[in-house]
Design a protein around this nucleic acid. Structure first.
Length: 424
RNA sequence: GGAGAGCUAGUCUAAUUGGUAAGGCACCGGACUUGAAAUCCGGCGGGGGUUCGCGCCCCUUGGGGGUUCGAGUCCCCCGCUCUCCGCCA
């Protein structure tokens, strides 16, 4: 959420941000409603003041045993009048608020213009992007080694939900544990949050209202299935004021993530590439505003470290304004190289939100000297497992199509060195 | 799932059984002091409107609704915490 005063004083900046981010909110209507709303509000407050004053005379008269009939009538009329103005105000307010909640964060100045992922800017390539490797692509390996069974999954659940089997399941869990252990070395506090999230928290990090259609909802309880650990973890200190000495707060969390992926059916949905359920380790930072950009670089490098330790080549891209999420001001994507599919696959998004989320969440800090301020929030996946697994299955694939286990994952395989077929 | 108790600003704690949130502690500033403690004076939650500014005003007693001229207080719904009972991996 943007500061209202900022919006009023810099309407052109906000309008440009909406355009650049390809958001659909009607901003001129918003400004119009904002003015209407304030006019009603002033009228309302004036009448309320009158009511308060008259009402305290009423109390005085009553206490002194004086007649109150006349004042009672006045109060009754005034009260009716106020209720009418309140109705008008509420009507405008509701429309205004709806639009307000759809105003996105403002992209940083040095983010590239553009409307789709093709306009994202590659800023770094790490490792050797091997283009001649032959073998089975990730989907074929999964089938051959029986690492994931989609048919069984759909018997139990529905299509696009994974069921990992045998070494597939072990690889998945090994990845998660490896990542958590790695972040532990960098002074992250590990969080294992609930997977059902209330509406307020979904709003806080900016998933709602925009992404409601993409979320799984338990209607009976008005709870949402966790779409990313960003939501429960960033909301952990909701409504609190954190003393400056406690910053930065650095949290890591494993969660299973659930997304409807509405409207993304097609070729891309095959196998592990896009699923309704996947696992992810997420890093979250809560920092002082002046530390934001350093923190962003730190997050990025810690996400990169996961791929470096797995010895998987990747590139870093800075997202263009049209490809960035609603709440983000600056986002880097990490894309791992899948050498047999010959594609870069997004395994991480590292984002800086400035105070956009903190404003929604009510998350401030108290400097040692000076006034309370909103915290700046950041997060980054480090990493989402499915595409990391894809890269491993292709990168470490041997001539017989079995897969060598990456060195850093060996401690989680109790002596086993190669991923084999789960079918005995 | 059932029954009961509770929720007041960082914290503790009041508010005539309906009259417009009083205090203590903590914290911050000042005075006194060589310095500190103690003492005294002042300030001290959040959101919003208006103003060049000082300030003035409105909202806010877990959330929402209702009754009323007026609700912390009465009524309804929901959330959370605690206690007990039942069920359960």
């Amino acid at each position: 959420m943007l500061d209202l005063k900022f919006i009023r004083e810099n309407p052109h900046i906000v309008a440009q941000a909406i355009k650049d981010k390809q958001e659909k909110v009607d901003f001129s209507q918003f400004l119009d409603l904002d003015e209407q709303r304030r006019n009603f509000l002033q009228e309302l407050e004036f009448k309320r003041r009158q009511l308060n004053q008259l009402s305290s005379s009423m109390a005085k008269f009553k206490k002194q045993g004086e007649p109150t009939d006349q004042i009672h009538h006045q109060l009754k009329d005034l009260s009716q009048e106020i209720k009418q103005i309140e109705l008008n105000y509420k009507k405008v307010y509701d429309q205004w608020e709806k639009l307000y909640h759809f105003i996105p964060n403002i992209p940083e100045q040095d983010t590239p213009l553009g409307s789709s992922e093709q306009d994202n800017k590659t800023i770094k390539i790490w490792g050797e992007v091997e283009k001649s490797k032959e073998g089975l692509d990730y989907h074929q390996v999964c089938e051959k080694l029986h690492l994931v069974n989609w048919q069984s999954a759909s018997i139990i659940s529905q299509s696009s939900f994974p069921l990992y089997l045998g070494d597939g399941a072990r690889l998945e869990m090994a990845l998660i544990m490896f990542m958590l252990d790695l972040h532990q070395k960098h002074q992250y506090t590990q969080v294992f949050p609930p997977f059902l999230i209330n509406r307020d928290s979904m709003f806080g990090t900016g998933q709602l209202p925009k992404m409601e259609e993409d979320s799984y909802v338990i209607e009976k309880d008005d709870l949402f299935l966790n779409p990313t650990a960003e939501v429960p973890v960033t909301n952990l200190f909701k409504g609190q004021i954190i003393p400056e000495q406690k910053l930065p707060v650095k949290l890591s969390a494993f969660t299973t993530c659930f997304r409807r992926e509405a409207g993304s059916y097609g070729k891309e949905t095959k196998g592990l590439l896009r699923m309704h359920q996947f696992n992810k380790v997420e890093l979250v930072h809560l920092v002082k505003p002046e530390d934001g950009f350093n923190s962003l670089e730190q997050l990025l490098s810690q996400a990169e470290l996961v791929l470096q330790q797995l010895k998987l080549p990747y590139r870093v891209r800075m997202l263009c304004r049209g490809d960035m999420t609603f709440a983000s001001a600056l986002t880097y994507d990490l894309e791992v190289w899948a050498p047999i599919s010959k594609k870069f696959l997004e395994v991480s998004s590292v984002s800086y939100f400035k105070d956009f989320q903190a404003r929604r969440i009510g998350l401030k800090y108290q400097p040692e000297n000076g006034a309370k301020q909103f915290i700046h929030t950041l997060n980054g996946s480090a990493l989402a497992t499915p595409r990391t697994m894809i890269a491993i299955l292709e990168h470490y694939q041997q001539e017989d199509n079995t897969v060598m286990i990456p060195e850093v994952l060996l401690p989680y395989f109790s002596g086993q060195k190669v991923i084999n077929s789960s079918e005995q």
